[in-house]
Write a protein that binds this DNA or RNA. Sequence first.
DNA 1: ACTGGATCCTGACTGC
DNA 2: TGCAGTCAGGATCCAG
Length: 272
Amino acid sequence: MPELPEVETTRRGIEPHLTDRRITAVTVRQPVLRYPVTPDLADRLCGRRITAVRRRAKYLLLHAGSADALIIHLGMSGSLRLVSTNTPAGKHDHFDLVLDSGHILRLNDPRRFGLVLWATAPVEAHPLLARLGPEPLTEGFDGDYLYRRSRGRRGAVKTFVMDSAVVVGVGNIYASEALHMAGIHPSRPAGRISLSRYRRLATAVQEILSRAIEQGGTTLRNFTNGEGKPGYFRQHLRVYARAGEACPECGEPVLARVIGQRSSFFCGRCQR
DNA sequence: ACTGGATCCTGACTGC
DNA sequence: TGCAGTCAGGATCCAG
């Protein structure tokens, strides 16, 4: 479900409801997620106030008065919602953070590819975070960087930009969209693309992600922003999930093809 | 160091 | 209606 815009949308949605609130209880209904939920979370969190809600890549980081953090990842199907304390838990509601405001931060994740883990400071050194590439919307990410990192790589450029060791947050939807905007064929070997084209790609990635965040993310099935509202970027998708429809640039039918085990959408005429 | 493939899990949808 | 098969917004691990 969530790529960077959806996770950032979630972060923005929940942050004002969490900051300065005291945690009164922690409920784990299903400890078997991608990794086992850290035991004893209640001991670490109860009675403490939430001081920051950060994001790194697609990971949400909740701080409660220290540099240690609770890491939450939504996987493919996860979502976080704020509900009132008396809301009964439904199917796949695996984790609750009960607040003194009368609200609960509730994690729902049907496929259970998400995770809830405690990370001691420095959080950046946690194994899940240590090897991540730069954030696409901050300094350190540009076409020169992509060009440098791509030399010698023979795999498809789409797989390359989705590699979180290269740049974080670019998932299957926005990879297709950014490559279309940049006019680059998704199957082209990453190491055989010029610097000027990587500059276009870097700009495209940033534009697509920024616009998607402005629209509250993309809702394909059931993504919501923490207050139960969907994202509105779906209508702006130009090629993703539009196989057979006319390319908005040239009118040729959009093609679908599996690249790196992921479905990919592109225009065979605009993208070379 | 890079690459392709298998893998975790449930639900929605398609075609018979 | 039922059932089997396919696919899904992620990311790690493994063998080669």
